[in-house]
């Protein structure tokens, strides 16, 4: 698994149909397409209410070619456990049971089901695409919304609390594989999903997913914004195999290079409009401290 996938040897199989209901320039479109390429045909998806439910389609047309179970918001982890138990009872090994949830469905509403599944050690892959608010219902703040972001429920001054670090919460369950990825680096995401499904037990991948309509930028900038988040160090790409932490891909090479100032990331999006110079300096200091820890 050490060999990295390149664009040229990436499979042409598509498991998502065109003409789905996702917004133009949706970061989730890239994440979903790439992750399903890595998972392949032998996969069952478990999806709670989220933007993905919208993308996935309304009866009678489904935008995905894989079997998919739509479950209630708080039960994603538990439902995935149930699907795995059913596969075991029918003696169908080698089926990937994948929970695909948004940040609200993972870190706020669904956290007890996720924690339970991780603690029980169920053989599932949990992918959380983090678009940093409840986008599908109209941009309400979530636990993973970063500090200072203006949403419809944190108007004018922005959110005052800091972003919840869900990968760290999941890492505290000591699961065999945990990784973060970004919609702007699909090949990195592909490799991480491929690696995750070779492991037994609970696996978790947290994917940073830019959202043009919720974050306030042009749809064409989705990948640029995603890359900027990684280059500024606000979102670090790493993986933890059996507790061994290591930075990967662009974040690893960012260790030896000077990082882009966080201001360029904030200026590119309308949702950070409430931040003043003082707040930006403070956030830059926080990022510098985090990275000083990585270099440590």
């Amino acid at each position: 698994m050490n060999q990295k996938t390149s664009i040229l040897n990436l499979t042409e199989d598509e498991w998502v149909n065109p003409g789905n209901r996702a917004c133009a320039g949706c970061g989730l479109g890239i994440v979903y397409r790439t992750a399903l390429k890595a998972l392949g045909k032998n996969t069952i998806l478990v999806v709670p209410p989220s933007c993905l439910t919208v993308l996935q389609g309304l009866y009678p047309i489904a935008a995905t070619k894989l079997p998919c179970l739509n479950v209630v918001f708080a039960s994603t982890g538990a439902a995935a456990t149930g699907v795995r138990a059913a596969m075991r009872a029918r003696k169908k090994d080698g089926v990937n049971v994948v929970a695909f949830a948004g940040d609200g469905g993972t870190g706020d509403i669904g956290i007890q089901a996720l924690s339970g599944a991780c603690e029980r050690g169920d053989d599932i892959l949990y992918i959380c695409y983090d678009n940093e608010a409840y986008m599908n219902t109209g941009v309400q703040r979530s636990g993973t919304t970063p500090q200072g972001v203006v949403t419809t429920t944190t108007p004018i001054h922005g959110k005052s609390q800091v972003k919840k670090d869900i990968p760290a919460i999941v890492a505290a369950h000591h699961i065999p594989y945990l990784a973060t990825a970004s919609a702007a680096y699909p090949l990195d995401l592909y490799d991480k999903v491929k690696k995750a499904i070779t492991k037994k037990g609970p696996k978790y991948i947290h994917v940073h997913t830019p959202c043009p309509s919720g974050w306030g930028f042009e749809p064409s900038q989705t990948v640029k914004i995603g890359k900027l988040a990684v280059k500024t160090g606000l979102f670090a790409l790493y993986e933890m195999e059996d507790g061994d932490f290591k930075l990967t891909g662009p974040s690893l090479s960012a260790l030896s290079k000077p990082r882009t100032p966080v201001k360029s990331y904030f200026d590119a999006q309308q949702r950070f409009a409430s931040l003043d110079e003082e707040a930006i300096a403070q956030l830059q200091h926080q990022v510098d401290q985090t990275w000083a820890g990585y270099m440590g």
């Binding site: 149909n17 065109p18 003409g19 789905n20 209901r21 996702a22 389609g57 309304l58 009866y59 009678p60 047309i61 489904a62 935008a63 995905t64 070619k65």
Partner: peptide
């Protein structure tokens, strides 16, 4: 059971 069939154009001609 209501079961969706896979196909393009769930959102119409996007």
């Amino acid at each position: 059971l209501s079961k969706s069939e896979s196909g393009p154009g769930d959102g119409g001609r996007t």
